[in-house]
Amino acid sequence: MSRKHRLCPCGSGEPYAGCCGRLHRGEATAATAEQLMRSRFSAFAVGDADYLLRTWHPDTRPASLELDPAQRWTSLEILGHTGGGLLHTEGTVEFVARYRQHGHDGELRENSRFRRESGQWLYLNALAIG
């Protein structure tokens, strides 16, 4: 399946090009914190480090980001969220992101914090779970 028609890694069931692909290309911005979380997962899955840096809050953004080509992100499960809607300026999204690396399956569980500034949602940091 071509990149244009393959399903989006975020799990929406929509084609990548019309889902997170349009955010990655800069044609749209995330309307909610969850949409940004999904688009950032998809950026990890397709290897788009530039998008990850663009959507990272400047207070916590690293100077550079090197993605591991041996790590293949396979699925995203959203567990819950607080705030992060159209009328909010802050929100959290709790999720499980699954991956495969060097023949082994793994998962990342995180509760990510987001902040909206100048109309754009940005990833701030991760909160401890548990």
Score class of each variant (00 low, 15 high):
Y123W: 04
A97C: 07
E107L: 14
T32G: 03
T55Q: 04
V93N: 09
H5N: 14
R98A: 13
L127W: 02
L127I: 04
T82M: 02
L23M: 13
Y16C: 00
V93S: 06
L124Q: 10
D105N: 13
R115Q: 14
R54G: 09
F114D: 08
R100H: 05
F41K: 05
A128P: 13
I129L: 14
A128I: 02
R100S: 08
I129P: 01
S42E: 10
Y123C: 05
M37E: 05
A45W: 03
L53I: 02
R61W: 08
G106S: 10
V46E: 13
R61F: 11
G83A: 06
P15K: 12
S2W: 03
R22Q: 15
C10D: 07
D50F: 00
P58R: 00
E94L: 07
S64G: 09
H102M: 01
H102F: 01
G11N: 06
M1A: 15
E27Q: 15
P9L: 05
R61M: 11
L124I: 11
R113M: 08
N125W: 05
G130H: 13
R109S: 09
Q120T: 14
M37K: 07
I78R: 04
H81Q: 15
W121N: 00
S64W: 01
D105T: 12
S118Y: 06
G91L: 11
N111A: 06
G21I: 08
G18M: 02
D105P: 01
L7E: 11
R100Q: 11
T89Q: 14
G83S: 04
S118G: 04
G13H: 05
Y99N: 01
L122M: 13
T89M: 11
T89P: 03
I129V: 15
W56L: 00
T32W: 01
H104T: 10
A128F: 00
G83T: 02
T32Y: 01
V46C: 02
